[in-house]
Design a protein around this nucleic acid. Structure first.
Lengths: 195, 195
DNA sequence: TGTACATCAGTGAACGCGCGTTCACTGATGTAC
DNA sequence: TGTACATCAGTGAACGCGCGTTCACTGATGTAC
């Protein structure tokens, strides 16, 4: 069946959409291609006209999902500045929806085990994300701002991950709350003595 | 073969040692019992007299590994205070040895997907770990200190994970360096206006 | 405009492989007499 | 002290299952004439 010319791209994007959710929900290693293709309403043989291998799907999907996440924080940034970004990230809604949330929080250690090529593609997108954060810090433009922005992102990622391991909601909330307070302190103007 | 009475415990600990390294190196889902048992110089049938299931091995192993990590930072704390703990965590040596490093940095999202029981056991050990950090902050004893300590740990975990995804060493070092600077700012005495 | 042919996204069965788990068995050591 | 028996850690083969990948095929659409 040869279909309309746009159809292949639509199917391909549908696979990426589904895969990005399965990966974030279950982890990259634990999410199988058969399940992803079934959820995309295709048989698993249809995977290979679109992607070379699972690794190439991972490469494309993870970068795409981080880019989506970047778009989300850009919206929050416009609406309420960096504090809105922090509060939009460290909250129970995000904690409870890993499948549509930040791919770094859901997959970071697994991404670190990927090939150098995959990590390169991922890190390029992450750098753009961090640029958005850095550009909205008090000392925007400096090298220190970039490092602070990266550490701020690290704090948000790590804190959300730990909160997701909490066995009860009260503890999770307290962890997120502490993360917000710490993040707000980080983004204050750099004290002179540390500059 | 019924062996000396201490032998079973020794074998059991050998399985935990090996498993803790394989999990941290490859991820929980990607590390197979057959490989772990072979590395422990046993056949895979020998797994079940020691553990009920892979899940119970994970539960015990991850908690054990985090406890070992706790012991390490206690040493660093004694030697050089909380700054030594931060510098001992956010460096290239730790980055390059995930199999013997912090299990949170290697496995946090996967731990978040474990059963409530497993997460409960893990979080108990994590709380002890965070207590050691909190007790060495300027405002030790306060609820704020505990939250700051948790966020500090989140920052270290997330930053190390991201640095591990960097495709080149220079970038990884810069990320770790920014993490150290941010961590040091976090542990300063809480400014009055935020208290 | 109508017809013949080329393309190729998607199907569905099959591949070898490693997964976690089960189980009948072995045999070195401990215990009872 | 010597012998018979019980224990049970560890062996090794087998279980069903899902993994990622391959491949011959189908058939709807596009292109050429």
């Amino acid at each position: 069946m040869r279909y309309e010319k746009e159809r292949k791209q639509l199917t391909r994007q549908r696979i990426i959409d589904v895969a990005s959710q399965r990966f974030r929900a279950d982890g990259i290693a634990a999410a199988g291609l058969a399940g992803i293709m079934a959820e995309a309403e295709l048989t698993k043989g249809a995977f290979y006209p679109h992607f070379e291998s699972k690794e190439s799907l991972v490469r494309e999907t993870v970068a795409w999902a981080l880019n989506e996440q970047h778009a989300k924080i850009q919206k929050n940034m416009q609406a309420g500045g960096i504090e809105a970004v922090i509060r939009g990230y460290l909250n129970m809604k995000h904690l409870q929806a890993p499948q549509t949330g930040c791919p770094a929080a859901a997959l970071q250690p697994e991404i670190g085990r990927e090939s150098e090529q995959t990590r390169g593609v991922y890190m390029d997108v992450l750098q753009e994300y961090v640029t958005t954060l850095a550009d909205n810090l008090p000392d925007a433009g400096s090298k220190a701002a970039r490092q602070t922005a990266m550490a701020l992102f690290g704090l948000m990622v790590g804190t959300l991950q730990i909160a997701r391991s909490a066995p009860d909601t009260a503890l999770a909330k307290s962890i997120l709350d502490g993360g917000i307070k710490a993040a707000l302190r980080l983004i204050e103007e750099t004290p002179a003595k540390l500059r």
